[in-house]
Design a protein around this nucleic acid. Structure first.
Lengths: 205, 205
DNA sequence: TGAATTTCTGACCGCATGGCCAAAATTTAG
DNA sequence: CTAAATTTTGGCCATGCGGTCAGAAATTCA
């Protein structure tokens, strides 16, 4: 027995184990971004990490848990960065613009993570064949965006519109901005982000 | 030799062969929509079509050609429907609204095709590992949308903005609308389409 | 130091895949 | 009707997959 179940449901992990998990997750991010989800086998990830394939099975319950770890860690990073930038913003319009611009800024500096996240999002399926991520897992994100838009409506900044449609569109527009940038690396991401912020702000007023 | 290369680059196909190809393509659409791209093996598709696996290999050069056929045929259907609806529209705003609403209308009646298209779009890769479809294959679509937006600018209907950003956002918003509808079948697709048309129209003026 | 524990290795398993092909069945042409 | 051409079958192959495991190596602990 290498660890016990803790009250919180988390395993107690040694430093070494945590370091290994980090290393494997990072290797997974790189491999997925390079060759795509379908070709990102445990063998390739292990090779990239410079370890034997069995180590992954030793530290992770299976491929699914590894992929979920990738998602969780990347998401945590993004959230940390963006939330910090949004603090202090007052108006809804300002919140909007800050959200878009800061996500863009962070992702420009972490391109591989973005690619890997997209791959997992689009491809990972649970054992029974259903997509593991998708619109249904974005519910929390949508609600967060909705609260911004609703705030704008309450403050009289924004007109009346369906906040769910706006939130879905908002998130899709950001994703598309990244997708476009990924295939057109010379594309000016920051300029796109500003244009998008203008666009959405006008759509609300 | 079962067929010769024609001047146009197309093979000359017998009625029987064309019918078989149609049948296989339709089976592929169904299977992909049901179990996803990764699990849509040639065996499953053949089983669905009620034929032997080898038949697919006989009529298609490989899995990639089959998938491309699926995309081509579904795209052709969508284009035919939408273009017919857009004829007669005068103002750019009207064109915009018609585009969004008619795509939604068509897809509501052809849900499996939409799902299959998305699966292939996200997963199909060429032999060398590069994504077969993606932003880079949407160039034609973007240009078509840009021409609408530019028309609006020329006519003085629309303000000055980056038409490429608008086109990318426009397409992404439509895709997201479908994705949301797919996981929330009770969602009112037509209402969403109308909201989206309002939203984009306001963003332009 | 020496024993206990954790971590790692490399071979191996069962399985599903895409593709291949000889032979059978069917359709077409003379 | 017969022969040629087309189409289909069903089994076979090599490959790569995720996962497992016994035993070796490394680390920790007493």
């Amino acid at each position: 027995m290498r660890s016990e179940i803790q009250p919180g449901g988390q395993k107690a992990r040694s430093f070494i184990e945590e370091a290994r998990r980090d290393q494997i997750v990072r290797a997974a991010v790189e491999v997925i971004a390079e060759v795509g989800f379908a070709r990102a086998s445990l063998a390739r990830i292990a090779q990239r990490a410079g370890i034997s394939k069995g180590v992954i099975s030793y530290h992770f319950a299976g491929k699914e848990e590894l992929m979920e770890q990738v998602v969780d860690r990347v998401y945590a990073q993004i959230g940390e960065f963006v939330v910090a930038r949004m603090e202090g913003a007052e108006s809804a319009a300002e919140l909007l613009r800050t959200h878009i611009v800061s996500v863009a800024e962070h992702m420009r500096a972490n391109r591989v993570q973005l690619t890997a996240l997209g791959e997992i999002f689009n491809n990972l399926r649970t054992t029974d064949g259903e997509p593991r991520y998708g619109v249904h897992t974005s519910e929390g994100l949508y609600q967060a965006l909705e609260s911004i838009y609703r705030r704008g409506q309450d403050r009289g900044e924004f007109r009346a519109f369906d906040v769910r449609v706006m939130a879905v569109t908002h998130q899709a527009a950001i994703d598309a901005m990244f997708a476009y940038w990924q295939t057109h690396p010379e594309h000016d991401l920051e300029a796109h982000a500003r244009q998008l912020a203008d666009l959405l702000e006008r759509a609300c007023t």
